[in-house]
Every structure is written in structure tokens, then in C-alpha cells.
Design a protein around this nucleic acid. Structure first.
Length: 743
DNA sequence: AGCACGCCGACT
DNA sequence: GTCGGCGTGCTC
């Protein structure tokens, strides 16, 4: 309905509206408009803002969850209130965004220190924000047709009746007509026990950690719980870390639940499809929503279950804008809406593990279920450590450095080749060599715009900066002294591929990394090549270690794993352990070959406890060791972190801005005793200090109490606006990252 | 962030 | 005389 703004109603109803205004705008919270009729909270609107008409959401204070900082800038009584403008349009063809969704937005905005309007609008599909009533009607008709439904459903549905009414008359995607009911796989004893426990936990809506080995059948357990949610007339939300993993799972879900509506929500969808799928979820027409981290913000009026697969995966943390953790928000949302949440992983994050350990070791907040056994296949792959320190007596240090593979590993690769089995070699570095070097004058291939080396890519003959993208044709001679003898230092996947071809003549070598998977569908094509047996040895970065099912690989080798052992990033060991377990999980998924599948690791530190735990496939031992170290160092989950980042024209101004912020924090801390034990560390430049000619600096804040940290941040951040203005144009932007992954 | 208004150089 | 550079400032 369009309201006529030439004849504004004399006695309109005031309505608080969330609109997208970045914090810099100096406005936060809601803006006040006038509407002809009272509007329900959560109603989507179009409102005039400046010279534009923008999308807004009717908002209001909603009890204890309301964000205290989101007070309207103006209220009814304000003397200097500008004339309230009229709501331009009410999109009442859509039901209002529900209380669960609104509470999630309120919480996430407050927790991650963003304006509620900015967060709320940024998690809606871009096309929805542009829609007026007429366009919306068109979209809804098209969606109706696609889902083969007739009139929109009543907003509330009785349990039991739902199954019949939600079933569309035709499948969502063009495909075979009515499918026969799928044959359910038999459950293992472990799966049965886990499902019993999950049913119990679901009654109480307790969060559950499903700690299941790779290949233990976690997905089947998820699907059984999804079935239970659907039978109860509810919607299920499944989160996966990467887009790459959605098509596989989506196909499996569609086959498993024919007649149910499954939609995907991730950034790989086009704007139109994204809107359609979002609408299907919001209207309650979709039964299953499968997506990446953004999907945690889907509007789900009948939500009954949330699954977070591979919950430890760093991709769940958004790295720009509102830097939220979709996994943490999933747990919060489930608790708030009183529904079950399952976190699944073979190598849980230490935060989750700590929450799943009973007191006094952990918090006991989550229920822990273990599924240690691999289905069908026998044992997990045997872990073999290649002790480079011992081998150097025999072969010399230089030879071990120059050759990618120590002789025993090379022999093992030859064995597989002779037996017609496949191998996977992991190296976490793209390109031919990470840096070029001139032995004559000491020149190195640095990036003119970043404090980083440019990587030599031999295939397209370029020097390429992986931070800013700056690329140039590789020089024939040293650009500094003219010496033609410039040399690559180190090794990336391109070079490894080349060296493998020499070491294993006749072997068919393949490579999968971000460079070989540029085009749409090229990852799938290359994976198919591996599946079809067209490849003997596959070289890849960590992207191949995730999720893909390689039935015929019996050897996985990890090169240069040691780097993570001594990284300054306190989470590096956790990530390495997860990566190696996951990589090992690629091997021997075929029962016939499981017995001789192996995970090889070349290391100078074979006695390291991480490798000992890995060899024993003992995640609990690894986690116990790590948690002890974290506790002693006062790191998460035993403390709570926030990272204040600043980007500026010069390093000095970035540091000065942070130093000023530190003084503000100190002031606040003297005023509020509860904040006294929060530690604000001195500002430091990050490991890559300059990117694309922008200088960066960061400052760590550490607190034993999460609420205290939250309150300090909320009181602290508003002061930055003035300080940045005083710093002038040199300070470009700042952002706070609550619960940062890397510091 | 958008998207204005606002005040000084090369073009019809 | 206009078209247009992007420097401040506002948005219920």
C-alpha cells in the first residue's frame, strides 16, 4: 500500500524504523517516521531518507533484549525535532520479521558492536532492499509458481498437519517427477546411541557437540534429526563452512527429502535466486535451508533445528563488516528460540571442546556425544612421521631442503603409483616460489604497495602480490643490478607439481588450488578427473583437504607442516591438527583400501606433542594439552578478546589513533571498577603492516569477563568518532573485531 | 555510505 | 558564459 505523502495524515502513528546508516553517520538506533496505521514490529517498509527512499524495518524496544544504546535519537517530546516524514510504503505482502530474528539482530549488533540498522539491513538480500510493493508481488507470484504452491499458508500451522500442507505439488528444481521414498541406510550402534541422546537433548534444547571421526557418519545423524524436525512441522537450518560443500550436500538432502522444499543461501547465488530462497525461508515455505555463515541470519518462522557442520572451521567467522561468528550466533539463536543445535566436528574448536567438557575441566554448557569409529572402513589412516633430523645424517641437510620429498616418502609415492593407487600431496602455498631473489645484489621481489613479497607464478610469467593483487611480468634480469641470474626461493604448488613430474616420471600429476579453480565449475571438473582415476598424484592447497570424498586415495602427504608449530598465532596448532586430521580423512574412505592408507608428515620435530596426539588419533589428548597452554597464557577460552584495528595513510597516525584510544580506555577503567582487570595492550603493526599503500595497526584488548568486555567496548567506541576527526584525513577507518580468530 | 550543495578551471 | 573537479555536511 502506498501512502500519499502530499496529504500527510494529521494524526499519524509514530513508528521507529531501522535503516542502513553506517556508524560514521553519527546516527544510531532508529529513526522516527509517521504512518497512517500502527505498524507491527518487524514490518518491512520503504521510507524517505534524505533524497532517497530506502528499505527500513519497523522496530521498537522489546524488553530485556533491547539494545540500550539503540535509543531513538529523537522522541515525541523533543523540542528541536525535525518534522517527521511519512513512511513511503508498507510491504505488507510479507509477514513481519519474527521475534526470533529480531532478537538475533539485536544481540549480534550489540555483541559485535555494530549499529543495529546496519547489521539488520546488511543481512537481508540486496534485491529485497530495492523492492517496492509492485516488484514484490511479481517476485512472490514467480516464487509461488516455482514452488508449485497455491495460496500462501496461514501464518501458524498445527503440528502434524504441516507435513501435508508444506509438500509442494512439484519439486523445486526441474527434475524427475515424484521420487520413490529413499531407502534409509542402516545405522551403526554408535549412530543409534547418538540419535537417542540427540532426541533427549532436543527435548531440553541443549546444545550438543557431535564429536565424530571423519567417516563416522555424522551427516546421516544430521539428516535423521532434520527428518524429526520436519515431521514436527518445523524448519531445519544446516550450516556448512564453504560454498564448495553445498552442492554435494544439497543433492543428498533433495534425494533424501523429496517433496520437501530445500533452498540454499550463500554468496555464490545470483541476486534473484538469493531473494527467492530468502523469501521461501521467510514465508515458511522452505523446510530446509542449507547455507554458509550468512544463512544464520535467515528468517525462519518455524525454526526447529540448527546444525553447524565442521563447527571448528574458521570460515564461520566473518572477516569484514560485522565480524560475527556464525557458529556462536547459531548457538545463541537456538538457545533463544528454544530449539536444538548440533555442532559437528572431528576436531572441535577448543572453545567448543571446553564448553563440552564437564566442570571443573570445562563449562559443561554443551552436551558431548562421541562417534569415534569409521563406518565401513576399518581403521583411520596410519600416521607416519618422516624424521628429517635423523635423515639428514644419511642424506645431508641440503638435499632434504632441495628435494620436496625425503627418500622414504618418495618410495611410498612410487609404491602407490605401481599399485595404481592415488596420492594427495598438500602444500599450503600457491604459485611457483614465494619470492624471487638476486644473489648478486640481494634484491627480492617485494611489492611496491605492500609490506610483503610478490610470489613468482611461472605459468603466466608474473610476479603477483597475494595481498593487493598487483601483478607484473616477471623480469628477465634483476631490476636492481641487471644480473640475469635471479632465483626462486622456496616452493609453491606449481613448483611442487614440476618437481613431482621429475621425481615420478610417467605419473599423471594434477594440481588443485585457487589458481586452477578460477572459473565456475572448474573445481568440480577437476575433482571429477581425480574420481575417474585420470590423476595419479594430486597436489593441492588446504582447499582439497576439506570435505571432498576421494575414494581411491591411499596416501596423503603434508609438506612444511612444521611452520604452524612455531607460529605467533596461538590458534595455529589447533588449525594444523584439524587440517591434518581432515586431510588424513581423505585417505582410505574405501573400505577395501582403508587398511593400507597412510598420512605422511615430513618434520624436523617428530617428538612434538601435536604429532604424538595425531599419530594416536587422540584429539582429546591434543585438546587437553592446548587448553592447559591457553589457561597458563590467559588466552581464550580462559579470557575474552577484542581487537581494535586501524587503517591510516601513515603508520604513525594509525599508532597515534590507537594510542589515543588506549588513553580513553584507561580513563573509563578508572571510572568503573568492574573494568579494572581488562588489559589493553600497546598498539602494534600486524604481520603485514601495509596493504595496497594503506598502513595498518592493531591493539588487543583482553578481559577475564565477557560482560565486562562488552560494556567497556560499548562505552568506549563512541569516543573514536571525535578522535578520528581530530586525526584528520590520515585515519581512514577503524573497526573492532570481537572474538578475533587471529591476533 | 550515498547524495547533495558549493566554489574555481577548460570548453560550446 | 556553462560543465564538472571532488571538498564538507546531512540524513527522522
Amino acid at each position: 500500500m502506498a501512502l500519499d505523502d502530499r496529504t500527510p495524515p494529521q494524526t499519524g502513528h509514530g513508528v521507529a524504523v531501522l535503516v542502513e546508516l553506517p556508524k560514521h553517520a553519527g546516527l544510531s538506533g532508529t529513526l522516527s517516521y509517521r504512518a497512517a496505521t500502527p505498524l507491527p514490529v518487524g514490518q518491512l517498509l520503504r521510507v524517505p531518507l534524505g533524497r532517497r527512499v530506502v528499505c527500513g524495518i519497523a522496530w521498537g524496544d522489546e524488553g530485556p533484549l533491547a539494545d540500550a544504546r539503540a535509543t531513538p535519537v529523537l522522541d515525541e517530546g523533543a523540542a528541536d525535532a525535525p518534522v517527521r516524514r511519512d513512511v513511503a510504503e508498507v510491504l505488507d505482502a510479507l509477514p513481519p520479521l519474527g521475534p526470533g530474528w529480531r532478537a538475533l539482530i539485536r544481540f549480534a549488533a550489540a555483541y559485535y558492536q555494530r549499529a543495529p540498522g546496519e547489521l539488520a539491513l546488511s543481512v537481508l538480500p540486496a534485491d529485497l532492499r530495492e523492492l517496492d510493493t509492485a516488484a514484490l508481488q511479481r517476485r512472490l507470484r514467480r516464487l509461488d509458481k516455482r514452488l508449485g504452491r497455491t495460496p500462501p499458508p496461514a501464518p501458524k500451522r498445527r503440528r502434524g498437519a504441516a507435513a501435508a500442507t508444506t509438500a509442494p505439488e512439484t519439486p523445486v528444481e526441474p527434475g524427475p517427477e515424484p521420487l520413490p521414498p529413499p531407502v534409509l541406510p542402516d545405522l551403526s550402534e554408535e549412530q543409534r546411541l547418538a540419535l537417542d541422546a540427540l532426541a533427549d537433548a532436543a527435548e531440553r534444547a541443549d546444545p550438543v557437540l557431535l564429536h565424530g571421526a571423519t567417516g563416522s557418519g555424522k551427516t546421516e545423524v544430521y539428516l535423521r534429526r532434520v527428518a524429526a524436525a520436519l515431521d514436527a512441522g518445523r524448519q531445519a537450518l544446516l550450516l556448512v563452512p564453504e560454498i564448495n560443500l553445498t552442492p554435494q550436500l544439497e543433492a543428498r538432502i533433495r534425494a533424501r527429502f523429496p517433496g520437501r522444499v530445500t533452498v540454499a543461501l550463500h554468496s555464490g547465488l545470483g541476486p534473484a535466486e538469493r531473494l527467492q530462497n530468502w523469501l521461501a525461508a521467510h514465508l515458511g515455505w522452505a523446510d530446509i535451508v542449507l547455507g554458509t555463515r550468512m544463512a544464520v541470519f535467515a528468517s525462519l518462522p518455524r525454526l526447529g533445528l540448527i546444525v553447524v557442520d565442521e563447527e571448528h572451521d574458521p570460515s564461520y567467522k566473518q572477516q569484514e563488516g560485522a565480524r560475527y561468528s556464525a557458529r556462536d550466533l547459531a548457538v545463541w539463536r537456538a538457545r533463544q528460540e528454544g530449539v536444538a543445535v548440533i555442532l559437528g566436528s572431528a576436531t572441535p574448536s577448543l572453545e567448543t571442546w571446553h564448553n563440552a567438557l564437564p566442570s571443573p575441566e570445562g563449562t559443561g554448557r554443551y552436551h558431548r556425544l562421541g562417534m569415534p569409529t569409521r563406518i565401513g572402513a576399518g581403521a583411520l589412516p596410519q600416521v607416519r612421521l618422516v624424521d628429517l633430523t635423523r635423515l639428514q645424517e644419511q642424506f645431508g641437510r641440503q638435499m632434504l631442503r632441495d628435494q620436496p620429498f625425503a627418500p622414504p616418502l618418495l618410495a611410498a609415492l612410487r609404491d602407490r603409483l605401481e599399485r595404481g593407487e592415488q596420492s594427495l600431496v598438500l602444500l599450503n602455498r600457491r604459485g611457483y616460489a614465494p619470492v624471487l631473489h638476486c644473489p648478486g645484489c640481494g634484491w627480492k621481489s617485494d611489492c611496491p604497495h605492500c609490506s610483503a613479497w610478490r610470489v613468482f607464478h611461472k605459468l603466466d610469467r608474473t610476479l603477483r602480490c597475494h595481498h593487493c593483487g598487483f601483478a607484473e611480468r616477471v623480469p628477465r634480469a634483476c631490476p636492481s643490478c641487471g644480473d640475469p641470474d635471479i632465483q626462486p626461493i622456496g616452493r609453491g604448488t606449481e613448483r611442487l607439481e614440476e618437481q613431482l613430474a621429475t621425481a615420478l616420471p610417467g605419473a599423471r600429476i594434477g594440481r588443485i588450488d585457487a589458481d586452477t579453480t578460477r572459473g565456475k565449475g572448474s573445481l568440480e571438473a577437476q575433482l571429477a578427473q581425480v574420481h575417474d582415476g585420470d590423476i595419479d598424484v594430486l597436489v593441492g592447497t588446504q582447499m582439497v583437504a576439506k570435505g571432498h570424498d576421494f575414494r581411491r586415495i591411499t596416501l596423503v602427504a603434508a609438506l612444511q607442516a612444521d611452520a604452524a608449530l612455531f607460529s605467533s598465532d596461538f590458534r595455529a596448532p589447533e588449525r594444523l591438527f584439524a587440517l591434518l586430521m581432515q586431510a588424513g580423512g581423505r585417505a582410505g574412505r574405501d573400505a577395501a583400501q582403508a587398511a593400507r592408507s597412510e598420512l605422511w608428515i615430513q618434520t624436523w620435530h617428530p617428538q612434538h606433542p601435536l604429532y604424538a596426539a595425531l599419530t594416536a588419533h587422540d584429539y582429546p589428548a591434543f585438546a587437553a594439552g592446548q587448553l592447559l597452554e591457553r589457561q597458563q597464557a590467559g588466552l581464550p577460552p580462559f579470557s575474552h578478546l577484542a581487537l581494535l584495528r586501524c587503517e591510516a595513510r601513515t603508520q604513525e597516525s594509525a599508532m597515534a589513533f590507537l594510542a589515543q584510544a588506549a588513553r580513553r580506555a584507561a580513563e573509563l577503567q578508572t571510572q568503573q571498577p568492574a573494568w579494572a582487570d581488562i588489559l589493553v595492550y600497546p598498539p602494534v603493526p600486524p604481520s603485514v603492516q601495509r596493504v595496497a599503500n594503506v598502513e595498518r595497526a592493531q591493539m588487543l584488548v583482553e578481559s577475564p569477563s565477557r560482560p565486562a568486555l562488552q560494556r567497556l567496548l560499548a562505552a568506549w567506541l563512541p569516543s573514536f568518532q571525535d578522535d578520528a576527526r581530530q586525526a584528520g584525513a590520515r585515519v581512514l577507518r577503524w573497526a573492532v573485531d570481537v572474538d578475533p580468530l587471529a591476533i
